[in-house]
Amino acid sequence: MTTPYTALLAGATGLVGRECLRLLVADAACAEVRVLLRRPLPAADRHPKVRECVVDFGRLAEHAEWFAVDEVFCALGTTIKVAGSQAAFRRVDHDYPLQIAELAQSQGARGLHVVSALGANARSSVFYNRVKGELEDALKALRFASLTIAQPSLLLGERAEFRLGEEVAKRFAWLIPGPWRPVRAVQVAAGLVNAARAARPGVRVLGNTELRSAAN
């Protein structure tokens, strides 16, 4: 993509979202980044190119004008432990991303670039994988001109909270078969931003192995 574009980013305070925001701000072709937030960004993440859109995610439709952008990046995600229930998890990992995509499409967005997960499958017996797969299927049905789905394995990066599983994975990553090895959050973000720049038509799935080789 060589012409200036506007972007919408959801999940900017998360592991991948923070890296997406950094890369979009650094991209000379990106004229503006509209960031959907529950609360204002930390001062260190603010930039003249960034427009903070503080919103109740349960009332996204009240701000349809925010979704009039060229490219949409969605890195929303939680865990059942943090969400508190399967229903709350589904709301964050399925319902909100789908509504964001629908609103952006209705406002003329061309590209959608989303973080899913390795193993996503709408027919999976694993709840987490099933929700991710159902979201992927719903997004494909919207038929964006360009849709990128990243399917990372365990994400590595600087988290606010300690996660034992991630620390174990860091130490023993060399024992994990290639396709399932942990991937750095910045590599996932780079895969999505690079895909938006390329603006290839149709659906593109970035598997974990491809993400781990992404330049950043």
Score class of each variant (00 low, 15 high):
93 D>W: 12
109 A>C: 12
95 D>M: 04
104 A>E: 02
82 V>L: 13
103 L>I: 09
86 Q>L: 02
132 K>F: 06
102 E>V: 04
119 G>C: 08
122 A>V: 08
81 K>P: 02
113 H>P: 07
72 V>E: 04
86 Q>G: 08
102 E>R: 15
120 A>G: 09
103 L>T: 02
74 C>S: 15
100 I>G: 03
72 V>W: 02
131 V>Y: 06
132 K>D: 07
106 S>V: 00
100 I>A: 03
131 V>R: 00
74 C>D: 13
86 Q>W: 01
106 S>P: 00
91 R>H: 14
116 S>M: 11
121 N>M: 10
138 A>Q: 07
74 C>W: 01
65 E>L: 09
83 A>P: 03
115 V>H: 04
121 N>W: 11
85 S>P: 14
131 V>A: 03
109 A>K: 03
119 G>T: 11
134 E>F: 11
115 V>P: 01
117 A>D: 05
77 G>K: 09
115 V>M: 07
87 A>Q: 15
96 Y>V: 14
134 E>S: 10
67 F>N: 02
102 E>T: 11
138 A>L: 05
109 A>I: 05
72 V>A: 05
67 F>R: 02
106 S>E: 13
78 T>W: 13
78 T>E: 13
85 S>Q: 10
96 Y>P: 00
68 A>V: 00
79 T>G: 10
77 G>P: 04
73 F>H: 12
77 G>N: 12
72 V>N: 02
109 A>P: 03
111 G>D: 06
131 V>W: 05
131 V>S: 03
130 R>H: 04
93 D>E: 13
94 H>T: 00
86 Q>A: 12
105 Q>V: 00
71 E>A: 09
79 T>R: 10
137 D>C: 04
133 G>E: 05
105 Q>R: 15
132 K>N: 10
114 V>E: 07
98 L>V: 09
99 Q>Y: 01
131 V>G: 01
90 R>P: 00
85 S>G: 10
110 R>K: 14
104 A>R: 03
119 G>F: 05
91 R>V: 00
67 F>T: 02
65 E>C: 01
120 A>F: 04
109 A>F: 04
129 N>T: 08
93 D>I: 09
119 G>H: 11
94 H>E: 14
105 Q>S: 13
90 R>Q: 14
135 L>H: 10
63 H>F: 07
69 V>T: 07
130 R>S: 09
98 L>P: 06
89 F>D: 02
110 R>H: 14
69 V>K: 06
87 A>K: 15
97 P>T: 09
83 A>H: 10
76 L>F: 10
113 H>I: 05
93 D>T: 12
95 D>V: 07
91 R>L: 12
79 T>C: 10
133 G>F: 07
91 R>G: 00
126 V>H: 13
112 L>F: 15
97 P>F: 04
75 A>T: 13
114 V>Y: 08
137 D>A: 15
123 R>Q: 15
104 A>H: 06
113 H>R: 10
70 D>S: 12
98 L>F: 07
68 A>L: 01
92 V>Q: 07
115 V>N: 05
127 F>G: 03
86 Q>M: 06
87 A>R: 15
125 S>V: 08
132 K>G: 08
110 R>E: 11
133 G>A: 13
85 S>D: 12
99 Q>E: 15
113 H>Y: 15
123 R>N: 14
104 A>S: 15
128 Y>C: 07
111 G>P: 06
82 V>Y: 00
84 G>Y: 12
89 F>A: 01
91 R>Y: 13
112 L>G: 01
76 L>P: 03
97 P>Y: 04
113 H>C: 06
